[in-house]
């Protein structure tokens, strides 16, 4: 009896299917519980990986719910790469469609934030722009400048108070009532998480997309305070160069 890896894989991920033929206990009898060692290793290790990757999602729904949900997720979306640090990239879309999670509508945004934290943590190193580089630009050319952002920078759009939901579940505190798009940067080795106003997020999204400063500012509306946004970006080492 030839046991193929297709049979093995199918039985590993489907607890209701019998172990493949051709697997033996030492007494020659068809293996069952011994096959379950592999089944258990796969399910537990992938569930653990998801729990490590999404600690705030886990906290928001509770560990029992999370592990049951992870069991569904890992069978629908097994890893496609041995690089497990980024496992779970389908989690936001999965949660958005997962019926038992609909009572917590901001879960997909929290999952996006937690994915971005890991991508930021492992992003390429970059040398930040000198803080005075902007001051050296002639004022009449300022509207034409564009910025290059560090690869660790991520902007998570959200209509929920995302930053304070994340903060309350990692550091404590109250959850805000207003929408909070969230900025992720990496000043050195540990990612930083900052709340933005929707206007700041709109300007920043345009700058990240490569729009010139003058065009990006049109997304901010009247009285937009550019100094506050640039000050935050500079203090977080989020900018690596400026082009005129």
């Amino acid at each position: 009896m030839i046991t193929t890896q297709t049979q093995f894989r199918t039985a590993l991920l489907d607890p209701s299917s019998p172990p493949p033929d051709g697997l033996r206990n030492p007494d020659g009898v068809q293996a069952t519980k011994r096959f379950d060692v592999y089944r258990n290793n796969v399910a537990v290790s992938l569930t653990d990986a998801l729990e490590t990757a999404f600690p705030v999602v886990n906290k928001l729904v509770g560990t029992d719910f999370f592990r049951a949900m992870a069991g569904v997720y890992l069978r629908a979306h097994p890893p496609t790469s041995p690089v497990m640090m980024f496992y779970g990239s389908d989690m936001p879309d999965f949660l958005a469609a997962f019926a038992p999670a609909q009572s917590v509508p901001y879960l997909p945004d929290v999952a996006r934030l937690e994915l971005a934290l890991r991508h930021s943590y492992h992003a390429a190193d970059a040398t930040p722009m000198a803080p005075d580089a902007l001051g050296q630009i002639a004022p009449d050319t300022l509207p034409n400048v564009t910025f290059t952002f560090a690869p660790s920078v991520h902007l998570i759009a959200s209509k929920y108070p995302l930053h304070s939901i994340w903060w309350a579940n990692t550091h404590g505190g109250e959850v805000s009532k207003s929408a909070q798009p969230t900025l992720i940067t990496r000043p050195e080795f540990d990612p930083a998480v900052d709340a933005l106003t929707p206007q700041q997020a709109a300007v920043l999204a345009a700058l990240i997309a490569g729009d010139p400063l003058g065009a990006a500012l049109r997304h901010g509306g009247a009285d937009f305070d550019l100094g506050t946004l640039l000050g935050l970006l500079l203090s977080r080492n989020a900018l690596i160069s400026i082009q005129t």
């Binding site: 890896q5 894989r9 991920l13 290793n41």
Partner: peptide, 17 residues
């Protein structure tokens, strides 16, 4: 051992004959 089949990585060291 093997761990990947049909592009699914199973995160375990699986046996072969």
């Amino acid at each position: 051992a093997w761990s990947t089949h049909d592009s699914a990585f199973l995160n375990d060291l699986l046996p072969l004959p």
